[in-house]
């Protein structure tokens, strides 16, 4: 699969989620920040995007701890993206 196709698939999984909050957050992040991530961070983001919304939200709100340092970096950036 080409890079653009991979990105399109990720875009679909970031913007067709169960909850509007997550469409806005992940879609906004993909648009604004994703291209500047390191390969490790990008991989960590893909793992986050594959989570279900109700697994991911506690990570974003800090109610659950991240699994590793790279994931924590990406979650911090996600929190920071702000839809507005």
């Amino acid at each position: 699969m080409e890079a653009s196709e991979e990105l399109n698939r990720l875009r679909w999984r970031c913007t067709r989620r169960a909850m509007l909050e997550m469409d806005l957050l992940l879609g906004g992040f993909l648009e604004r920040r994703f291209s500047s991530l390191t390969p490790e961070q990008a991989q960590a983001f893909v793992v986050l995007a594959d989570m279900e919304d109700l697994e991911l939200w506690p990570l974003i709100t800090g109610k659950r701890e991240c699994e590793n340092a790279v994931q924590a970096e990406v979650v911090a950036m996600l929190r920071d993206v702000r839809v507005k």
């Binding site: 989620r17 169960a18 909850m19 509007l20």
Partner: peptide, 12 residues
């Protein structure tokens, strides 16, 4: 389904 079943909007 357009998405994996447990990612449907029923979640909301």
């Amino acid at each position: 389904s357009k998405v994996f079943p447990t990612r449907s909007h029923t979640v909301a």
